[in-house]
């Protein structure tokens, strides 16, 4: 049994220690907001926070995150994520929507360390988050909006 803390809740999970956190979240805990896109840390769809840092959960063995604080798109306690979600809706960012949980989690990590990012800062922080629908222009706009809301 492995003990995990996800979005402030404690879970006991029974999964082989090499199982990537992504599949524990999705298949064991039923937290399906975190997405699979590549499985090799090159698309960002599976991004979650581990102790506040953005991590690709598809290559992160569950054994490595025991005792860590994990935050996913389903969080109800992270005001930065919530501000971003609101901005995402306002800016009508999503097309298919599949990449967006990962984009929002990466953006949340950016805003936590850089409350007023420039376009270049956003491009750098989100360069590992692919969007096949190419919603990038609106992602930039929404990150700026959320930064304003949080700074207000």
């Amino acid at each position: 049994m492995t003990e995990l803390t996800v979005n402030g809740h404690k879970y006991e999970v029974d999964a082989p220690p090499d199982t990537p956190l992504l599949w524990v979240l999705r298949d064991t805990l039923g937290l399906t907001g975190t997405k699979y896109g590549c499985g090799v840390a090159v698309c960002g769809a599976c991004t979650v926070h581990v102790n506040g840092n953005p991590m690709r959960s598809c290559v992160l063995p569950v054994s490595a995150v025991v005792g860590s604080r994990i935050t996913t798109i389903e969080t109800a306690e992270n005001s930065v994520v919530q501000a971003l979600q609101q901005a995402w809706v306002q800016q009508e960012v999503s097309q298919c929507g599949y990449c967006q949980p990962g984009q929002i989690l990466s953006a949340a990590a950016l805003l936590a360390s850089n409350p007023r990012p420039t376009d270049a800062d956003i491009d750098a922080a989100l360069s590992g988050n692919l969007c096949r629908c190419a919603t990038y222009a609106r992602i930039r706009a929404a990150v700026h909006d959320a930064a304003k809301t949080l700074g207000a």
Binding site: K35, Y36, V89, S94, G97, Q100, I104
Partner: peptide
């Protein structure tokens, strides 16, 4: 009118249901 997308909210919060997100008892992969 540029009315808001019906799927904007669920897609920003991870609630949108794609086929792989479906939960059924006894589901195998």
């Amino acid at each position: 009118k540029s009315l808001p997308r019906k799927d904007g909210q669920t897609k920003a919060t991870g609630q949108a249901q794609f086929a792989g997100d479906l939960k059924l008892p006894g589901l195998l992969t």
